[in-house]
Design a binder for these strands. Sequence first.
DNA 1: AAACTAACGATACGGGCAGTTCCGATACGA
DNA 2: TCGTATCGGAACTGCCCGTATCGTTAGTTT
Lengths: 209, 209
Amino acid sequence: MTNVVETHASEAPVRRGRGRPRNPETDTRITEAAAELMLERGFDKMTVDDVAARAGVGKATVYRRWPSKEDLAVAAMQEIYSAEIPDPDTGAIRSDLVESFRNVLGFVNSPAGQAYLRMSIAESVRDPRIAALYRASTERAEDQACRMYERAIARGEVRDDIDLLATVQWLGGLLAARAITNRPMPTVDDVEMLVDFTLNGIHAPSPPR
Amino acid sequence: MTNVVETHASEAPVRRGRGRPRNPETDTRITEAAAELMLERGFDKMTVDDVAARAGVGKATVYRRWPSKEDLAVAAMQEIYSAEIPDPDTGAIRSDLVESFRNVLGFVNSPAGQAYLRMSIAESVRDPRIAALYRASTERAEDQACRMYERAIARGEVRDDIDLLATVQWLGGLLAARAITNRPMPTVDDVEMLVDFTLNGIHAPSPPR
DNA sequence: AAACTAACGATACGGGCAGTTCCGATACGA
DNA sequence: TCGTATCGGAACTGCCCGTATCGTTAGTTT
């Protein structure tokens, strides 16, 4: 019939002449409203009518851009997963770890961090596309951590036969486990102990073996 | 009006004479059907009509026992979280760890284990009561693990200043992180390396420090 | 044995929300 | 200025949760 238009509002509009052009600001108003409601209530209790109302647009305007509520949620999460992560490089593995653990624990103990973590977990299990987004976001952080460990291996501080991926994921996994089962997060006061476990494991230092 | 009857089907019926008594087998038929559908499709795509149909009962019979679909889901998960866990005690921390890690990894790599894990994570974030059930289930396993570590501490194999809770949760957390982000689980082949990380951490053995 | 009563399966119905379709109005390009 | 696609608004369909109401059934009480 008419010109076929790509649905996803993310990419360049690639001007096509005829008719009233879409207001690009409307895109961001909708995704911002959706992101707010996702973090406030979660996917289930967020209604598309609410999103449209908060964004000040008609529901049809939402569905003209994203074919389903799930796609809208993906777009909203995509906006959320775009933050910079500090990359400590102090020259020693212990202080690098303390620094980065401190950053992570500070975030996940904030209200925003709590909502972010719970939402990411729940929606990742529900929708593989959100899982991919969350995964990409965490992998950026993990890549940084891997380089941190590799620098330490090059310095001879860390064994070279470790499972690097399991190592960089273990803290995130612990936080996920706590979030899932509704248990208190470790706080910044626990940083020393967590770092010590990473470095030394649990073995008694000398006597046995 | 009439005699008040406790809703939850779990507890003792405490005979009250009049009228046709409830068929207790109906309770289990419903929870079994619900548990199957939860693992097959997840909470969202499970409909109460489907549960009633698979159980061979009327929908009103379901709602006579559980006031909402959420309560039904809780009852279904409660049935799922009632499995025995082996409790290795070989006399050495390394072989205890190898044994228990092997059990866990064997389960989470099975199709049933995958569905179980993903369902538990998703529904725990959605419903705090399911989170409590899942937490209770994992805590039983963690208590066993704690006792295992305490035996090792008593033998002098393990330091006594470790964060026991973080230690017993780290493998579960790693598995959760993999499940959430849709990445491959560690397999039984990785047991040695994971156990080694638990025992020794990542530090290089002797030269530095 | 007969009467009583609550559970049973079946079915219809109300309400909330996802997603669709129409509308008149509007804004931009040709 | 004309054409066209987007805009907000609103009505509508369909699905599913939860309720209400049947006639029937099974066990208790008298």
